[in-house]
Amino acid sequence: MPAELGEPVARFIEHLASERRQARLTCNHYRRDLLRLACYLQAQAATWAALDSHDLRGYVAELSRQGLGGRSIARHLSAIRRFYDYLNREGLARNNPALGVRAPKAPRRLPRVADVDQLNELLDGAADDDPLTIRDRAMFELLYSSGLRVSELTGVDLNDVRLDEGEIRVFGKGGKERLLPVGRKALQALRRWLAQRPAMAVDGELAMFLSQHGRRLSARSVQLRLARWGQLHGADQRLYPHLLRHSFASHLLESSGDLRAVQELLGHADIATTQVYTHLDFQHLAKVYDQSHPRAQRRPRSRSRG
Rank of each mutant, 00 (worst) to 15 (best):
A45R: 09
G166S: 06
T278P: 02
R225N: 05
L190S: 12
Y59H: 11
F140V: 01
L266Y: 03
L224Y: 05
H251F: 14
S302P: 01
E177I: 02
G166N: 09
L148T: 04
S211R: 07
D270P: 10
A286R: 15
G70K: 09
Y86I: 08
A74V: 15
L87T: 06
Y86F: 13
L243E: 08
L56V: 02
I271E: 09
S78T: 15
L68E: 05
G306L: 14
R216P: 01
H251Y: 14
Y84F: 12
W229F: 03
R57G: 07
R31D: 08
R169F: 03
K105C: 00
L217I: 15
V116W: 01
L180Y: 02
P107S: 09
H54V: 13
G155I: 11
R135T: 00
L252V: 08
I271D: 12
Q231M: 04
V60K: 02
G67E: 07
S53L: 00
L259T: 14
R109C: 02
G155D: 15
H268Q: 09
R21T: 01
A138R: 02
K173A: 09
V150D: 07
S292M: 15
L239V: 00
R215G: 05
D130H: 14
G91E: 13
A249I: 06
Y240G: 12
G67I: 02
S146A: 15
R109E: 06
L87V: 08
L266T: 05
E4L: 07
R81F: 06
A74L: 13
A79E: 05
P8W: 10
A249N: 06
Q188Y: 00
N88C: 14
E90W: 07
L187Y: 04
A114I: 03
R94K: 04
T26W: 08
A286N: 15
A286Y: 04
G91H: 11
D164S: 14
T47K: 09
K173N: 08
A93P: 04
R108I: 02
R31N: 01
V202W: 00
G125R: 03
R108D: 00
